[in-house]
């Protein structure tokens, strides 16, 4: 067992863990936060997406012990003081979910995506005019988050409605 200290959704955790434990299993099993989901455990579906030090990652592919001192945000940490994050509200309003299993990952991914675009980080579809919040940019950047129910179009719409938001 190895000691690990990290901050999840604003709370500092000091734990002893199996070095084989992934960040996803740490959050779900050790800390009991069940929002992030395990859809494939291979980094292929995105249901486990968390925001670590401001960047989204597939938490199932990352060993927890590599996150000493890191700051992690899960879907539970998107809302503040009981108030939904604008993306969460937009996902409800645009029906950007069906079964909801991929939703925690979609939301974390979307929140980080808004920041990436604001910072001007390019993607494979970014043209010469530069990064902009186009449907094609959103689609490309959300393609690491699978949704078998097929809520993709509503997810794009939900992200567009809040893309100007500063939160």
């Amino acid at each position: 067992m190895y000691p690990l200290m990290l901050t999840v959704n604003g709370t500092v955790h000091d734990v002893e863990i199996d070095p084989r434990r992934s960040l996803l299993d740490l959050v779900r099993e050790t800390l009991g936060l069940k929002g992030p989901k395990k859809g494939c455990d291979h980094g292929q579906c995105g249901a486990c997406t968390m925001i670590v030090n401001g960047r989204r990652i597939n938490s199932c592919l990352s060993l927890a012990v590599t996150h000493e001192g890191d700051t992690v945000i899960t879907v539970e940490g998107l809302s503040e003081a009981g108030e939904l994050h604008p993306l969460q509200q937009a996902f409800i309003d645009k029906d950007a979910l069906q079964c909801g299993f991929c939703t925690p990952g979609q939301l974390c991914s979307a929140a980080a995506l808004v920041d990436e675009i604001r910072e001007g980080l390019p993607s494979v579809v970014t043209g010469e005019v530069g990064v902009a919040m186009t449907n094609e940019e959103i689609r490309e950047r959300m393609s690491g988050n699978l949704c078998r129910c097929g809520a993709y179009n509503n997810i794009v719409e939900a992200i567009r409605t809040v893309s100007g938001d500063k939160r």
Partner: peptide
């Protein structure tokens, strides 16, 4: 809106 929407977007 889906009545279970809030539970699903918050991870609850």
């Amino acid at each position: 809106n889906r009545v279970d929407g809030p539970a699903k977007v918050t991870g609850r």
